[in-house]
Write a protein that binds this DNA or RNA. Sequence first.
DNA 1: GCCTGAATAGTACCA
DNA 2: ACTGGTACTATTCAGGCG
Length: 772
Amino acid sequence: MVKSIRFWLIDLNDGEFDGQRSIFLWGVGEDGRRILLLDKDFRPSFYLLLTDRAKTELILKQLADISTEIDLIAEFSLETKKLLGRECPAIRVRYSDTSKAQRLAARALRLKGLDSAYELDIRPSQLYLLGNEVAPCSWHEAEVSEAAGSHGYAVSRIYYLHGRPRRQNDITYPQLRVLAFYLVCAASKGTPDPKRDPILAISIKTEKGVQSFTAEGENDSDVLAAFTSAIRREDPDIVVGFRCNSRDWSYLTSRATLHGLTLNISRAMTTPHPSIFGHFSVTGRLDVDLSDLMHDIPEIESDTLEALATYFGASPEKGFLSLDEFSISGSWADAQRKGETTKAAEQRAHALYDVCSKAMDFILQLSSLTRLPGDHVLTAAVGFRVDTYLMSRAKMRGELIPPREERSYLSYAGGLVMNPTPGIHRQVAVVDFRSMYPNIMIAYNISPETLVRGGSSSIDDVSVSPEGGHKFVKKPRGFLPSALLDLMAERKEVEKLAGQVHSEPEIRILQAREKALKVISNATYGYTGWLGARWYSKEVAESTTAWGRSLITRVSEIAKGMGLLVIYGDTDSLFVSHDEKRTKELLQRIKRELAFDVRVERIYSMVIFTEAKKRYAGITEEGTIEIFGLEAVRSDWSAVARQAQREILGVLLSDKGKKAAQAALDEIVSNVRSGRVPLEDFILWKTTTKPLSEYTVRAPHVEAARMLEERGWIVKPGDRVGYLVTKTVKTTGSRVSPYRFTSVEQVDKEYYVKEQILPACNRVLEVIGPES
DNA sequence: GCCTGAATAGTACCA
DNA sequence: ACTGGTACTATTCAGGCG
């Protein structure tokens, strides 16, 4: 019996059911039941571009012959598609077997009258999302008939789909079950090694509360078994960890293999398996690694769970209990240590749970917007998010999706950065363009297919970019501008809605939706200059920045023409001398003459510039100090130097004069020399960007990392290395030492005074006149 | 071999 | 692993000097 149901799509994959290839859609029904919907009728397809229409019949026959030869079940049909805006005939090939389809394409492209294959580089489950009105983390309506039994899957119903599900315009989501987990491993010699070091504890947090499984002695097989059954019992929709993709899942799998156990925790009773974007897939559930979230939040300085939790206000009231795996090893038999460690792990599982519930709206909205499944969307880099979003738009418009191509790097000019006027300035307005690059792309219709190659077009029909002289047709609206317009229009609408709605979950969801829209529209310009982009176009990227440079230059000229002082400018912002009346006039003139939206982003009652670009500090009228680019906000400077510079800036910006600042500096220096500073404040943190063996110079942080490696620590690209400069006199080599093996007595304080504190502070003090 | 200034490597910032 | 523009430190290297 066929009936209509509503469901929310959690995850999807393609696999086999009853010996038949099917798309598996894992969802939550309106009644809260966890369900599996099977689409047995979906066949992915790719396209072959037809260059010679007269040969169609012949080509179709040849294609059929090849398929028979390679034993591929395929259907062919002639369709009219668009390629970069131009209509063109294409042969659609519906196929059942991906690798055979690739073989068919390889041979087909040798035939006369065919040119390039499209959409063969996209996975079937992704094609399913793109080609239909189906989106992850969204509500759908579908016609289904119920299958008997649950076939061993962890769902309460299985349905066969009749036709495709249809996405509904509803941004809410059902009550989802979340399970957060945190792993503590023994670390007998540096970084825990799954071959050697057992898992000492796993803490999990669900709606019901916190629970821990701890190893008896060195045997963690019970821990693994308890964790497995806990997941099956709790049946979460979302499994949340921290570094679970880069560490926990493979650690768990390795330990399980060692004990001959199986971590069959997915809804298909399979084990977590590595998938695309360096991600682990737990079929039917969303595996969310919250460490990925930090790439989206630059405000979080250190890349730790504790910093993430603090940012989201999810830390325990009295702070986290310390958890140093290195020191636990060997003392696990001690009941008190064991208890403390377990408590610390529980705090972290709890914090992850809370962070997840606060970040969930954004993750789900981003997934639903881009159509990247909820567990991929955080792991996928910004470029892939834009890529997927554009792919779904292309599909809906009958546009062929361009393949990802190998390209060589070509540089182009970016934003304009002006030389600042050094010194202290009072009453300064920062005027900036709102969403400059997206608006430029819309205004000049900049897109790969609106670009005119060759010079035949009439000058009235095109916009010509400054400097590069690239031409873009004014009509019809381009692919990227139309995407940006939609994104910005929806953003405005969502903003408006958020202002009208007052109930708590709805407001949060709307704000998250807005953030997702913003992320995609802001990244689109950069995306066009990215070699990996399907819609890569250097001309598009460089024209966008060229118009940007021209705009900011004109703003600067207008300001100067009005007798305002232009103190600094970078890309889309301009610092000008401020008084109420003339700033207002400036804005009006810009709007009138340039037809772009500008606003006063900030008014500083005082701002300090050195001679350097991209580095300044200001104080607002409310007394908030903001620092950009200077040492005080650089994570690779020591805390002593950063704090010192911050303090000096504080004195100067509260108008206490240079002498007072100098006095404050003297005190800081003597305090450091007299030795009342903790070790942590001297640590220098730097990130390694590649394997240690690839470094060509003996950089300090690399030397420190090598010392760590000697002691059993594994330093991977992207890891932060903390080190100190010590007094050790060595004839050659460096004077650095990894922080966990250094005592404060070894620290070379003179280095920190002369090479850290004084340069950072003097840079600022030097630009201040003696009388200030 | 030692000193010095220029070139290069490396990182993290701003927009 | 979205872009280019930028500052800054430490290391490395080339060249002058004795």
